[in-house]
Amino acid sequence: MPSPVTLADVASSAGVSSQTVSRVLNNHPSVRPGTRQRVMAAVTALGYEPNLAARSLASGSSGTVGILLAASLSHGMSEIFAALARAVHDHGSEFILATADGTDPASVTAALAHLRGYRVGSIVVLAQRTDVLAVLSTQRDQDRIIVVISGQHAFASLRTVGIDQALGERLATQHVLDQGRRRLLHITGDLAWQDATERLSAYQAVCAEAGVPGRWIGTDAWTGETGARVARRLLESGLPDAILAANDDIALGVCHELLAAGVRVPDDVAVVGFDDIPQARWSTPSLSTVIQDFDMLGRQALALTAEALDGGSPESMTLTPELVVRDSSRP
Rank of each mutant, 00 (worst) to 15 (best):
A8E: 12
D9T: 00
D9V: 00
S12C: 02
A14M: 07
G15N: 03
G15C: 02
V16H: 03
R23D: 00
L25I: 02
V31L: 08
P33A: 12
G34H: 12
R38Y: 01
M40W: 12
M40A: 10
A42L: 10
A42G: 06
L46F: 12
Y48R: 05
L52R: 13
R55A: 12
S61G: 03
S62H: 03
I67T: 00
A70K: 01
A71Y: 05
S72M: 09
S74P: 00
S74L: 04
S74A: 11
S74F: 05
H75E: 13
G76S: 13
G76Y: 09
M77F: 13
E79S: 15
I80V: 15
A83G: 04
A83D: 03
D90T: 12
D90A: 14
D90P: 08
H91K: 14
G92E: 01
S93N: 14
E94H: 13
A98W: 00
T99D: 00
G102I: 08
T103C: 00
P105M: 03
V108S: 02
V108K: 03
L115V: 11
G121D: 06
S122D: 10
I123W: 00
I123A: 01
V125T: 09
V125S: 03
Q128P: 01
V132A: 04
V132K: 06
V135Q: 10
T138A: 15
T138F: 01
T138D: 13
D141M: 08
Q142R: 15
V148S: 13
G151S: 07
Q152V: 11
H153G: 01
L158S: 02
R159S: 14
T160A: 13
V161W: 00
I163W: 02
Q165Y: 03
Q165L: 03
Q174G: 11
R181T: 07
R181Q: 10
R182M: 08
R183Y: 02
I187L: 15
W193A: 14
Q194T: 15
E198S: 15
S201N: 15
Y203D: 01
Y203Q: 04
Y203A: 00
Y203T: 03
A205L: 09
V206T: 11
V206P: 01
P213F: 08
I217P: 04
I217N: 04
D220Y: 01
A221K: 13
W222I: 05
G224E: 14
G224K: 11
E225L: 11
A228R: 06
R229P: 00
V230M: 04
L235S: 07
S237I: 09
G238N: 07
L239I: 11
L239C: 08
L239G: 05
L252W: 12
V254W: 09
C255E: 12
C255A: 12
C255K: 07
H256S: 14
A260D: 13
A261C: 08
G262M: 07
V265A: 07
A270Y: 10
G273Y: 03
F274N: 14
F274V: 05
D275V: 01
P278D: 14
Q279N: 09
Q279D: 13
Q279Y: 10
W282C: 09
I291N: 09
Q292P: 05
Q292V: 09
D295A: 15
M296Y: 00
G298E: 04
L302T: 05
A303F: 05
L304Q: 14
L304V: 01
T305L: 11
S316M: 10
M317Q: 13
M317N: 10
T318A: 05
L319R: 07
L323G: 08
D327L: 12
S328N: 04
S329N: 05
